[in-house]
Simulated assay, not measured.
Amino acid sequence: MPNIKSAKKRVKVIATKTAQNKAVKSALKTVIKKAYYAVDTNAANKTEAVSLAMKKIDQAAAKGIMHKNTAARSKSSLAKRLNASA
């Protein structure tokens, strides 16, 4: 445990940020899974699900939760699967 006041604060701030990032990552994974499921089952709302997933991926990349190249790869994979299902 840190002894210095600023170091104690850093520990608390990092814990808060880690919890927030974890929540965003978890929600992102859920949205991506729903999009893949909608495409695979040929659901009526598959385009909306994919567009929502792409939006969430962009937001995560903008916040630095996901690397921009990883985000681009995820979006490309979603788009490819959506176009193949049409």
Rank of each mutant, 00 (worst) to 15 (best):
residue 10 R to E: 12
residue 77 S to T: 07
residue 40 D to G: 03
residue 23 A to L: 14
residue 5 K to R: 12
residue 39 V to T: 02
residue 71 A to H: 02
residue 27 A to Q: 15
residue 61 A to T: 02
residue 66 M to L: 15
residue 23 A to Y: 10
residue 21 N to G: 06
residue 77 S to Y: 05
residue 44 A to P: 08
residue 35 A to F: 03
residue 21 N to T: 02
residue 36 Y to D: 04
residue 32 I to K: 01
residue 1 M to R: 08
residue 59 Q to C: 00
residue 19 A to E: 14
residue 58 D to E: 09
residue 85 S to G: 01
residue 80 K to Q: 08
residue 59 Q to R: 14
residue 52 L to M: 11
residue 29 K to H: 08
residue 33 K to V: 07
residue 33 K to F: 06
residue 23 A to W: 09
residue 76 S to K: 05
residue 25 K to M: 10
residue 79 A to L: 12
residue 18 T to C: 03
residue 16 T to M: 10
residue 17 K to N: 15
residue 34 K to N: 15
residue 63 K to P: 03
residue 63 K to R: 13
residue 7 A to H: 12
residue 6 S to Q: 15
residue 35 A to Y: 02
residue 31 V to F: 01
residue 55 K to E: 07
residue 73 R to W: 05
residue 20 Q to I: 11
residue 68 K to E: 11
residue 46 K to H: 06
residue 7 A to V: 11
residue 16 T to L: 11
residue 5 K to I: 13
residue 27 A to F: 06
residue 63 K to S: 10
residue 28 L to P: 04
residue 28 L to Y: 08
residue 13 V to F: 05
residue 10 R to Y: 05
residue 27 A to W: 06
residue 34 K to R: 13
residue 5 K to Q: 13
residue 58 D to T: 03
residue 54 M to N: 13
residue 5 K to M: 05
residue 62 A to D: 12
residue 67 H to C: 00
residue 1 M to P: 09
residue 34 K to C: 01
residue 69 N to L: 09
residue 41 T to E: 14
residue 11 V to D: 08
residue 86 A to N: 11
residue 60 A to S: 13
residue 35 A to D: 03
residue 42 N to D: 15
residue 82 L to E: 02
residue 76 S to H: 07
residue 18 T to H: 10
residue 43 A to T: 06
residue 48 E to I: 07
residue 19 A to L: 14
residue 71 A to C: 04
residue 64 G to R: 08
residue 3 N to A: 12
residue 60 A to P: 04
residue 21 N to S: 11
residue 4 I to Q: 13
residue 21 N to R: 15
residue 2 P to F: 12
residue 15 A to L: 09
residue 57 I to K: 03
residue 39 V to Q: 01
residue 32 I to S: 00
residue 31 V to W: 00
residue 81 R to P: 01
residue 8 K to M: 10
residue 37 Y to R: 13
residue 19 A to C: 02
residue 64 G to W: 06
residue 55 K to H: 11
residue 29 K to T: 07
residue 12 K to T: 09
residue 3 N to R: 14
residue 79 A to M: 09
residue 15 A to Y: 05
residue 46 K to G: 00
residue 10 R to C: 01
residue 57 I to F: 01
residue 20 Q to R: 14
residue 3 N to D: 10
residue 21 N to A: 09
residue 53 A to S: 04
residue 55 K to N: 07
residue 19 A to F: 07
residue 57 I to L: 08
residue 8 K to Q: 14
residue 52 L to N: 13
